[in-house]
């Protein structure tokens, strides 16, 4: 009676496969298909099923998905760049030249740079479409707030990465950018309210103790800044943004999937 099973079928019903993917074999019923999603630590962040309109390009522009895709590309290409790039004043600039001219497939650097520009654009466009479709309305207002944090983190990643080539553009862009931090209320040395935080003649928020100082690791842009930005760019910010992305995706599912066009 036992007809011979194909190799694929035997694999799909074997112990190795079923121990990894519970539920046994190729999902056939709707319930089984849902279980596949629910049983995967990665897939379960995603809604278990998608309404037809949700995959229409016209509605989402796929901008959130593209942002995430670009983030993955940036993570992979970025980790690869770390194998060649040294964040010191002596080597940073020349290591970038080395990547451009000597390293096999040093185009990885271009991929990372263009990808970074693209991600900033797609995140803005994603926000724009969420706004235009009114998808920020309850029950999705919390996910909008998470989104604002994601936007901020994306811009901070872009800002910290900008310094790393240590060329003229980098140094002056970060000089200008970090000087704006002086004007932060209360915690920037030239910001409103900073002068209030003083006892007699002693100012507590000065050029050597304000928020800009903590950002630069000194009073001026220098080696300490390069190292600080490098650590933030390669570890600190990606770590934080991944946590918020997980919450973002999970909330889409919990808010009832992607909103419905009116």
């Amino acid at each position: 009676m036992a007809e011979k099973k194909g190799l694929l079928k035997r694999l799909a019903e074997g112990q190795v496969w079923t121990s990894i993917f519970r539920g046994g074999g190729v999902p056939k019923s709707r319930r089984q298909r849902m279980m596949v999603v629910l049983n995967s630590v990665f897939l379960h962040l995603h809604p278990v099923r998608l309404p037809k309109h949700a995959v229409k390009l016209k509605f989402t522009w796929c901008m959130g998905g593209l942002s995430f895709f670009l983030f993955l590309i940036l993570t992979i290409s970025g980790i690869l760049l770390m194998f060649y790039y040294r964040p010191t004043i002596e080597y940073a600039y020349t290591d970038i030249i080395d990547l451009a001219e000597q390293v096999p497939f040093g185009i990885m650097r271009e991929i990372h740079r263009w990808g970074a520009h693209a991600m900033v654009i797609t995140v803005w466009l994603h926000m724009f479409r969420v706004f235009m479709t009114g998808s920020y309305k309850p029950p999705r207002e919390f996910n909008w707030a998470i989104g604002v944090i994601l936007l901020l983190l994306t811009l901070l990643l872009s800002f910290t990465g900008y310094l790393l080539p240590w060329d003229q553009l980098a140094i002056w862009a970060i000089t200008v950018g970090s000087n704006m931090a002086r004007a932060t209320p209360f915690i920037g040395s030239e910001g409103p309210g900073a002068a209030l935080l003083a006892i007699g003649d002693i100012n507590f928020v000065t050029m050597s103790s304000d928020i800009r100082f903590a950002l630069l690791g000194g009073r001026f842009l220098g080696e300490a800044t390069l190292l600080r930005f490098y650590v933030l760019h390669c570890i600190g910010l990606p770590f934080i943004i991944m946590i918020f992305m997980a919450v973002h995706f999970w909330r889409i599912r919990k808010d009832g999937g992607i909103s419905t066009p009116v």
Partner: peptide
């Protein structure tokens, strides 16, 4: 920790 005492400037 983010506010060093000695600066290498």
């Amino acid at each position: 920790f983010f506010f060093p005492n000695v600066l290498f400037e």
